[in-house]
Nucleic acid binder design. Structure first.
Lengths: 94, 94, 94, 94
DNA sequence: CCGGGAGGAGAGGTCC
DNA sequence: GGACCTCTCCTCCCGG
């Protein structure tokens, strides 16, 4: 028979203890994962740095990567709307 | 904390007093200007909100405003580089 | 061309005209506000220049201004954390 | 066409080929890293889901995690402010 | 579908 | 004058 079942008093204490240790575990797992995520972000930044060192235009490079990661359809629609607005403003107003 | 500041004041009262009031005036002016700047930023955000409420695509609208605020030459060059990169990757890779 | 078609066209034309003038008005307002915002940024830069001319360390001055702006928020957050821990522990929840 | 001109052409072609493969390699590396990063983001989301399933308030939990990450930086800044005020007062120089 | 929060891109400032 | 780096703003995505 467990201590919890035996003592009603400690029941709530145990519950709160349990919640605390659970919270701790969750926060640790999250922080560990975020650490890894951050490391990857750093790696990516490094690659862009490398690209820059090799004479690539990182802004354009980012734009290309972004384009590749998105549906052609939505991209086209966006461009169409931009054109529409530019026309409405007199297209020379760029 | 206050004890430290107090001690400092006593140490070189006159020179430090003058510097202090000057500093205060400068900080106040800066904070006032930044406040106004922030208010304008809010106004701008509001206008975009209004645009959205009237059915405009705010993302496209922002793009158009950005375009209008920049030299055509640099814009074209940027687009050219992007095209170059896309070609190099096989232009279908969008 | 039928009268109906014509009416439709006019209607569209009107709607589009309206949208056009709306768009123009919005863009003008935005650009005006951004102009003012930029002017304020210039003013702020001027004040820092003045401070520097009077022997202040502008980098430190900027840091001071920044911190003054952040302190209240930090304090609030710091005091809010206890409450948040409580929530995170599920005390109020299920 | 002169030999010199030809040589130049070949050189350009080679350079461009090289740039192309370099570009491809860079983009591939970036996309691979972003994929991994996204996977970690998914893992993190999963952990929050698990937390929620165990009765935790995920919003509060997120806030707690965020604050834990910010606290050290804030503390440093807060303790640095005295030094900064001294500098801002021009004590050390201009 | 909207608002808020997290992440990324761009602008500005500092240092070399 | 250029590169790095911080900071603000914009965009995207999740949760409600």
């Amino acid at each position: 028979m467990s201590a919890v079942a035996k003592k009603k008093e400690s029941a709530s204490a145990d519950a709160s203890s349990f919640a605390k240790s659970q919270l701790r575990a969750l926060v640790e797992r999250i922080e560990r994962l975020e650490e890894e995520k951050k490391a990857l972000a750093d790696d990516i930044r490094e690659v862009y740095g490398e690209a820059k060192a090799n004479g690539f235009d990182t802004k354009a490079l980012r734009a290309v990567v972004r384009m590749r990661g998105q549906e052609p359809a939505e991209r086209q629609e966006f461009e169409a709307i931009v054109e529409l607005y530019r026309d409405a403003l007199g297209i020379g107003g760029n």
